[in-house]
Amino acid sequence: MTDNPLVPLIARGEADRTTTLAALALEQSRVIPADRRAFLHLAQRATPDAPESAAFFTLLAEGEALAAERLGGFAAACGVSEGRAAAYEPLPGCQAYPAYVAWLALNAAPAEAVLALTVNFSTWGGYCATIAEGLRRHYGFPDEACAFFDFFAEPSPELDRKATEALRAGRDAGRLDEARAHQYGRLLQSYEEMFWSTLHGSAS
């Protein structure tokens, strides 16, 4: 897991509920639908020649839809009203990650996007598991308010299987430049770190 200035604060109960945690909810309310559209576009691009990659991205898009349904409970527990959500100005450093996912959706070979995205999954899942535990222990959040993070913290054998199939098919077809895909993955990890450091800085 990479260095993250904010998740340890949540784990210790030191992040403010109505400012920092609320901002996390509000930023995610922009990230999730943006990523879903990017994954759907990748699935569409991959469908003719890379059905294995298309299946992977379709499953990712379905997961984002499920996550979006769970985000409202967290936002409500942080005191986010509809008016506040409508007036919120997203932070550029937080929205750089979905912007780059959208770039991958337009420019990356599907199998290379699969590899780039999976590189970051374990880090994100670990953050979500830590946050969910901190929310329950220190903030008294009920299961409904933690469901968004529980969802991403839970391992997904089906997603892992589809990723493996997509990468195998990409290699077999000569459509996977692993060096380039890992470069994409490193950039995604950097934007992930920027997301958390931006939130942390906005609360300082």
Score class of each variant (00 low, 15 high):
Glu193Lys: 10
Leu59Ser: 13
Gly201Leu: 04
Arg36Ile: 04
Ala96Phe: 04
Tyr184Lys: 12
Arg12Phe: 03
Ala129Gln: 08
Ala105Lys: 09
Ala46Trp: 05
Ala25Asp: 05
Ala38Val: 05
Asp177Glu: 05
Gly79Pro: 04
Gln44Arg: 15
Thr47Leu: 14
Gly13Met: 06
Phe141Lys: 12
Ala65Gln: 11
Ala109Val: 07
Leu106Arg: 15
Gly72Gln: 14
Ala15Leu: 05
Glu64Trp: 04
Arg84Pro: 08
Leu159Ser: 14
Glu178Ala: 10
Gly73His: 00
Glu158Gln: 12
Gly63Arg: 09
Leu60Lys: 10
Leu176Lys: 05
Ala86Pro: 07
Ala116His: 00
Pro157His: 05
Ala77Arg: 03
Pro92Glu: 12
Ala54Asn: 09
Glu69Ile: 00
Leu117Ser: 08
Ala54Asp: 11
Trp196Ile: 04
Phe195Met: 06
Gln95Met: 10
Ala61Cys: 02
Phe141Ala: 09
Ser29Asp: 12
Thr118His: 09
Ala169Arg: 11
Ala25Gln: 11
Glu154Gly: 02
Phe151Arg: 03
Ala50Glu: 14
Ala169Val: 08
Arg84Trp: 13
Ala86Asp: 11
Arg175Asn: 10
His41Thr: 13
Pro157Phe: 04
Glu89Asp: 13
Ala203Glu: 03
Ala68Ile: 08
Ser156Glu: 10
Asp35Asn: 11
Phe74Lys: 05
Ala113Ile: 01
Ser122Gln: 13
Ser53Thr: 07
Ala61Lys: 02
Leu59Ile: 01
Leu21Ala: 00
His138Leu: 07
Pro98Arg: 02
Ala96Thr: 09
Arg30Ser: 04
Ile32Glu: 12
Arg180Asp: 03
Val80Pro: 08
Gly72Met: 08
Arg180Gly: 05
Leu26Met: 13
Pro142Arg: 02
Thr123Ser: 14
Leu59His: 15
Phe39Gln: 13
Gly174Val: 09
Val114Leu: 03
Arg171His: 13
Leu24His: 08
Ala163Arg: 13
Arg168Ser: 15
Cys78Leu: 04
Ala105Asp: 10
Met194Phe: 11
Val7Ile: 10
Gly134Cys: 01
Ala147Met: 02
Ala129Asp: 08
Ser81Asp: 06
Lys162Phe: 12
Gly79Gln: 00
Ser81Ile: 06
Glu62Asn: 14
Arg171Asp: 13
Gln189Asn: 10
Ala129Tyr: 04
Leu6His: 02
Thr130Lys: 03
Ala38Asp: 04
Leu40Asn: 10
Leu60Asp: 01
Ala111Met: 09
Asp172Val: 08
Glu193Gly: 08
Glu178His: 07
Cys78Gly: 04
Ala23Gln: 08
Ala173Cys: 07
Gly201Ile: 01
Ala77Ile: 06
Ala65Leu: 10
Leu26Glu: 07
Arg161Cys: 04
Lys162Gly: 01
Leu188Cys: 01
Leu188Val: 01
Leu199Phe: 01
Phe57Cys: 07
Gly201Val: 00
Glu158His: 01
Ala96Pro: 07
Glu62Leu: 15
Trp124Gln: 10
Glu154Val: 04
Phe141Asp: 00
Trp196Val: 00
Ala113Trp: 03
Ala153Gly: 12
Ala109Cys: 11
Arg84Met: 15
Arg180Glu: 14
Ala87Pro: 06
Ala147Ile: 03
Ser53Val: 01
Pro33His: 02
Glu165Ile: 06
Cys128Asn: 10
Glu64Pro: 10
